[in-house]
């Protein structure tokens, strides 16, 4: 049953996409940190903010099957399956991105990449449960762009609850925000699944 489930949700293609995202994240971080007019590892916030969003958007493709309502009519433990799906998807995405940021991991490297992947996955799963998997990309992309632009520069810890995409690993508020988003997404998605929509996406 597992193999058809994964294939029906395009998991092999998404896994290949995650490898590409990780490679792009590594290349972008290398380019930024090697610019002579930038500040080495500290120049990587754009990667730490955007790469997790791209990974989460990719994983969102797997959060709904071709016909959600038909799937739910089958006698399967869907809540447990959904729970495991999100946990595995998040762990694999966060690990793939974190591996690209092992150099100076606490300066917009592995730690921030992992934390932001958890948060972005939380936003994506919340959106999937409320608006459907096909549209789950919109809130996280809009939010990350707005937070990146509006965050005080240099960042201040007091705003970490909403500026988590650009916060350093040392800001506890950003970790709590990521945990809150992830918990909300996990609960909503495990309980309700993806909201069925009229779109037929592939």
């Amino acid at each position: 049953m597992i193999r058809p489930h994964l294939r029906a949700r395009y998991v092999p293609g998404v896994a290949a996409g995650l490898v590409v995202v990780a490679a792009l994240a590594w290349a972008a971080a290398e380019w930024l940190s090697s610019r002579p007019y930038l500040d080495g590892a500290e120049a990587r916030p754009p990667v730490a903010a955007l790469a997790p969003v791209l990974a989460a958007v990719l994983v969102s493709v797997t959060l709904a099957g071709a016909d959600e309502e038909l799937e739910r009519s089958t006698a399967r433990p869907w809540r447990a399956i959904r729970l495991a799906h999100v946990l595995v998807g998040t762990t694999v995405s966060a690990a793939a991105l974190a591996l690209t940021g092992l150099w100076e991991p606490a300066r917009y490297g592995a730690y921030e990449l992992a934390r932001n992947t958890v948060a972005a996955m939380g936003m994506v799963t919340v959106a999937t449960a409320l608006a459907g998997a096909a549209r789950a990309w919109a809130p996280v992309i809009a939010y990350t762009g707005a937070a990146y632009l509006a965050a005080p520069k240099p960042v201040i810890a007091g705003t970490a609850w909403w500026t988590w995409p650009v916060q350093p690993a040392s800001a506890p508020g950003a970790w709590w925000a990521a945990a809150a988003w992830f918990a909300a997404g996990l609960v909503l998605y495990a309980r309700n699944g993806a909201r069925p929509t009229a779109d037929r996406d592939a």
Binding site: V53, V57, V61
Partner: peptide, 18 residues
């Protein structure tokens, strides 16, 4: 006309504009 065209284009837009 793929499902990921819109989000990937949006993120690519951020990268290019940045």
């Amino acid at each position: 006309p793929w499902r990921l065209t819109a989000p990937v284009l949006g993120l690519a837009g951020y990268v290019v504009m940045g």
